[in-house]
């Protein structure tokens, strides 16, 4: 056994100083190991036997290294190439509704001009222009009562707002994917839940296979294109205003502010963990919160003791931010979502009273379904995750 070479999959290897990020890009699974682990992987990739690899690792570490146990761990992670050739491999699912395959499909050189130095200068200028316009021109500021449902017919408002939201979301998520393509990485789209919100998401986990500084572009690409769209709409409104432009501007500002809620694992959360060099802050935050309330379960104290020190350092304050986030989300729902839903249901009740023979009846039901649908999906996903946890 120890004289046989170990066949590894095509693994990614990123040197982060004291640690090395290793991953299987096809499956989308990544791990962090000490630098000596990187020496072991590199030796195995070069076809060295376990024996020879152990000798090189000992030379590097200055003490004997248990290579066979590490190879066994790699096997458990699925990092060894043990398939029949020709087997198609699928990435591991990370969301309840998700594309089953990685999405490539665009040559990197076509996407690259959108994320070069000139492009980022443009994104920055658009963000500054939008901010200045919102601060300096009071008439452009979003007004929840006026812009979102400026039309007197709330049903028409629903029909206007939700499709616009979907189009803007598609552009935002598509831009994340384009930025990943510029780095020659694939991504995949999915739908998931964040606390009480339904979210459209782009899985950018393959960013773990590139150096840290190159991860920021794809993470900020969504907000970058939001800034451009907002700048165009605000500029347009200065010249010629109308209801649709008001609604688009309102939704864009609303969505960009929403991204600031890092405790929901938004784009800016990913930027934060990249900046702090965290590896698994989300899990460590949960463990630290449980520890604070004396609710650690079996094995979790050991898991916490083995956690990355940077994760623990950040988790000590991030856990309270997350807890405060529960109240922020409750306030957000009470301030934004509830008033809209209440007035919608009142309007629906009045319209439905006309009876199923009237077209108003069906129109009102369709509008209600469109606005209530996402909230019902959130409830469904919450119930589903509760059931799978209990199983």
């Amino acid at each position: 056994m120890t004289t046989q070479p170990v066949r590894l999959r095509r693994l990614s290897l990123v040197d982060e100083g004291e640690e090395v990020l290793v991953g299987d890009p096809e499956a989308g699974t990544f791990i962090s190991i000490p630098a000596v682990g990187g020496v072991v992987i590199a030796a195995l990739m070069n076809g060295a036997t376990v024996e020879e690899t152990a000798r090189r690792a000992e030379e590097y570490a200055g003490e004997p290294v248990d290579v066979p146990a590490f190879v066994e761990t790699l096997r458990e992670l699925g990092f060894l190439d043990e398939d029949d050739p020709g087997d198609e491999r699928m990435p591991v699912a990370t969301a309840p509704i998700q594309g089953r395959r990685w999405l490539s499909g665009l040559r990197p050189e076509l996407a690259r001009p959108l994320f070069g130095r000139v492009a980022w200068f443009g994104y920055g200028a658009a963000a500054l222009f939008s901010l200045a316009a919102l601060v300096l021109v009071p008439a452009l500021r979003p007004d929840p009562a006026g812009d979102a449902f400026a039309v007197s017919d709330i049903g028409l408002g629903a029909l206007l707002v939700y499709p616009i939201t979907l189009v803007l979301a598609a552009v935002h998520e598509g831009w994340h994917w384009l930025a990943a393509r510029a780095l020659d990485l694939p991504a995949r789209f999915g739908i998931d839940r964040r606390m009480a919100f339904l979210v459209f998401e782009t899985d950018l986990s393959l960013l773990w296979s590139v150096p840290r500084k190159r991860r920021y572009g794809p993470l900020l690409a969504g907000l970058a294109i939001d800034s451009v769209m907002l700048a165009v709409v605000l500029g347009w409104r200065m010249v010629a205003d109308n209801t649709v432009l008001g609604a688009v501007a309102y939704i864009l500002v609303f969505q960009m502010v929403w991204q600031c809620m890092v405790f929901l694992r938004t784009d800016l959360y990913a930027v934060l963990i990249t900046w702090l060099r965290c590896k698994d802050l989300w899990r460590v935050k949960t463990l630290l919160l449980r520890r604070a309330f004396g609710r650690l379960r079996e094995g979790e104290a050991a898991e916490l003791a083995a956690a990355d020190p940077r994760d623990v350092r950040a988790g000590l304050w991030f856990r309270w931010l997350w807890l405060a986030g529960l109240f922020v989300v409750a306030a957000w729902l009470a301030f934004f979502a509830l008033p809209v839903l209440v007035s919608l249901l009142r309007w629906t009740a009045a319209e439905v009273a006309a009876g199923p023979a009237a077209w108003r009846f069906w129109y009102a039901l369709a509008c209600t379904a469109l606005l209530l649908g996402p909230w019902l999906a959130v409830a469904g996903l919450a119930v589903r995750s509760r059931l799978t946890r209990e199983r």
């Binding site: 990544f30 000596v36 682990g37 609303f254 990913a270 083995a306």
Partner: peptide, 19 residues
């Protein structure tokens, strides 16, 4: 010495779908 392995979390970019 034993080589300790730590998992890293998935990286997701999101848009709010409930407005």
């Amino acid at each position: 010495m034993k080589i300790e392995v730590r998992k890293v979390e998935p990286i997701k970019a999101t848009t709010n779908g409930t407005v």
